[in-house]
Design a protein around this nucleic acid. Structure first.
Lengths: 339, 339
DNA sequence: TTTAATAGTGATAACGTTATCAATGATGTG
DNA sequence: CACATCATTGATAACGTTATCACTATTAAA
């Protein structure tokens, strides 16, 4: 049994190949009678058009690529799902191009990935979407791209992102509203733009509420559990212990929880802990973490939408760009009765 | 600037297109002099061959697809990385086809995914790789496939998997060696084949050591944190509490830890807990979980290797099929001094 | 009624590769 | 020297689509 082509269908239906093509592509100006004949032949033969030939002829593959280098599985998977959802709507396929931005042959690697991939466009996430060298490479290859949650202030390319600074501000305000004044902050990896946005939101909230900044309450972390542990150990050994700790992501918050447990500090009675990202782990520990949920899926979908719009040379100005985060209050925070 | 084709290179080098094709494909019987000329022209023009045209002509896309429907992000990402590693070696690209096997239009959905994807072969993971309907669909489309960690006893297709039963046996033996006799077991989702293998290993170890099975020590879970919580609550309310609990995955083990903390049962002094999978969460809670690490990446790579071998009609008998797991002992288990 | 516009159809040429096959020249054999 | 063998090259035809353009048949406009 050999592959069925349009030619076979045309022969069977007694029409020209072009007419068959017209019917399968829902073009106008085909008589209903012809439509019937063709559709019948298609069904009888079980014809399926070859996406490859179509791609070659149309000079578009209908494949988008997600280029990433990021060890946070939950995040990447949400991104993948978001992109895929939009791809489903517009009949695109998603190819993934994992790479490692710490690899010494990083650029050659993604260059070879891009070469053999024949993609219509690329989606970038942190930290790649903030790396000028990566952007330059895509420009060099004349590949359209969109950025998912970039942190550069005015990206040149279409993008979608959440309002991290505002969410961080709200989270801090929430802690203050619970009576906390001594709020420590564990910052994320300083090479990620997010880290700075989250810090800014925290600082603004303190300033707004006339709470003086205590330098001993600031810790530099790196988004890892281990870095969180180190920071937590320091913070919880202070003479004047903070009543609340705001960790820049859930992994570090989980580490704070661990140290607190080891030191027999009751959470949330004696210490409130909040994280960021609403990672699965935030629900799998006890007490469950109060955290911030980003609409990652939505962000990814919308970035994809913009990319596809660009490919079709449609305008994408009206597509949403900035997304609100959501405070998720769980069990790791409580009211602080100051003495 | 228009795209550079082989024709352009041929013109520049003063040779025929076929000769250029021969050179880029490293074919034999081309004079060194010709090779030079062609390579020079290729470099000068910055020629890159079009993978699409090549695919159309060769009737192979060099694209593999991972079809999955599984909410465990860490697992899927490891699988993706394993596949990608092998794809890199053999110059394939990886396309992902996420779907939901609980969706009522599941089959139509994957049918349409497969249709528009033009893939050379498909990789399947649990639970899809154990669903006869999915296999039938792939057979119908004459798509080659390989199975990653299937649980059916004698899969018809090439596969690679870990020895779950043995690992589960070893873990139980380990607990027994620590002095535990009252070992409870929380089973995973019964619709996953893994669940049964893990149960079997546990049961065999008990039998081997002449430990009677206590029915109250068996709980049916579903791999979710919530199901683990329910089971843990029951187990830890028993009059004769078990001294150790073997949860079939880390999420459920984390839930046991939560309930223990709530009940102020000290882990590991008063209760040992073990999980399975070495999910990131196992290190992000305290005490960190003793668990089983599967070589997921390796398994995925080898399944991919077999699939690619099949595509090239090579033999793949000598490729490894069964992989050993590794016991990861952390802080959630300790010696039990029976009274 | 005549002319102009439009709807419907099909040959044919692309898209950028690789494979077939024939042609050429070089080398070796009887 | 005639002939077979082999390495090297290039014209040309695929792969399965879609777009161009020309051609009819039909309808609308004048």
């Amino acid at each position: 049994m050999t592959k069925i082509t349009i030619k076979d269908v045309a022969l069977r239906a007694g029409v020209s190949v072009k007419t068959v093509s017209r019917v399968i592509n829902n073009e106008v100006n085909v008589r209903a009678e012809m439509q019937e004949k063709v559709k019948k032949a298609v069904n009888e033969l079980g014809f399926r058009r070859n996406p490859l030939a179509r791609a070659l002829r149309n000079q578009q593959t209908s494949i988008l690529s997600l280029l990433y280098s990021n060890p946070n599985p939950g995040y990447i998977l949400e991104v993948q799902n978001g992109i895929q959802a939009q791809c489903d709507l517009d009949n695109y396929n998603l190819q993934i191009l994992p790479c490692d931005h710490n690899d010494e042959h990083f650029f050659e690697k993604i260059e070879s990935l891009l070469q053999r991939s024949s993609t219509d466009g690329v989606l970038l996430i942190e930290p790649l979407c903030d790396m000028p060298e990566v952007i330059d490479l895509l420009d060099k290859y004349k590949l359209p791209y969109a950025l998912i949650s970039p942190t550069t202030s005015e990206p040149k390319a279409p993008f979608a992102r959440s309002n991290d600074e505002q969410a961080s501000y709200q989270m801090t305000e929430y802690l203050i509203s619970q009576g906390h004044k001594d709020i420590a902050f564990i910052m994320g990896d300083p090479s990620h733009g997010d880290s700075h946005q989250r810090l800014k939101g925290y600082q603004n909230a303190l300033a707004e509420n006339n709470i003086a900044v205590d330098d001993t309450f600031f810790e530099q972390g790196y988004f890892t559990f281990e870095s969180g542990e180190i920071s937590a150990r320091r913070l919880l050994s202070l003479k004047n212990r903070p009543s609340a700790i705001f960790a820049s992501n859930d992994y570090m918050a989980a580490a704070v929880l661990k140290v607190a447990a080891q030191k027999q500090i009751k959470v949330p009675q004696e210490l409130s802990i909040v994280g960021y990202d609403d990672t699965p782990v935030s629900k799998q520990i006890w007490p469950a973490l109060t955290t911030v949920r980003q609409p990652i899926r939505d962000i990814a979908s919308h970035a994809t939408k913009k990319l596809i719009a660009q490919l079709n040379k449609c305008s994408f100005d009206e597509v949403k760009t900035l997304f609100e985060c959501q405070l998720v209050v769980r069990e790791s925070t409580s009211i602080w009765a100051s003495d």
